[in-house]
């Protein structure tokens, strides 16, 4: 169980690093990387919720269902994380595409130049 607490705190630190990067770093690419870190922190929270010290949730043919249910990790959160990884990958792809277009115009990645309000 101690492992779970450590993992939760690590994921909290990842979330905070991500937020710091998004708000305080003046570079589009670094902002996008920070968003990835933020998303990974949330994914780690989800994974850790499903951790109970058990094995991988794959049943071997000779194990009865009730024995397996007692010693397996929870499958729900792992499924949620798989879904969320795809979602984040697609968001990143779109953002990278736009930053390529804007980079071609401004020849810089500084967000104070690119994202300036007009």
């Amino acid at each position: 169980m101690d492992f779970q607490i450590v993992s939760f705190i690590a994921s909290g630190i990842l979330v905070i690093i991500g937020l710091y990067g998004v708000f305080f770093v003046d570079n589009i690419l670094k902002k996008i990387i920070a968003l990835d870190i933020l998303g990974n922190g949330v994914n780690l929270v989800l994974i850790t919720i499903g951790y109970n010290g058990g094995t991988i949730p794959i049943k071997l043919p000779n194990v009865p269902v009730d024995v397996f249910a007692k010693k397996s990790a929870y499958p729900l959160t792992q499924a949620l994380v798989l879904t969320n990884i795809v979602i984040e990958a697609s968001m990143l792809a779109v953002m990278l595409g736009v930053s390529i277009i804007l980079y071609k115009k401004y020849k810089t990645l500084k967000s104070s130049v690119i994202l300036k309000e007009d």
Binding site: V22, K31, L38, V42, L46
Partner: peptide
């Protein structure tokens, strides 16, 4: 449009991640 789209997506990604948390 490109600029405000990028701004919208960055804010959106933050908000959506926090909402998932």
């Amino acid at each position: 449009a490109y600029k405000s789209g990028l701004r919208y997506m960055i804010m959106g990604n933050i908000a959506a991640s926090l909402m998932l948390l």
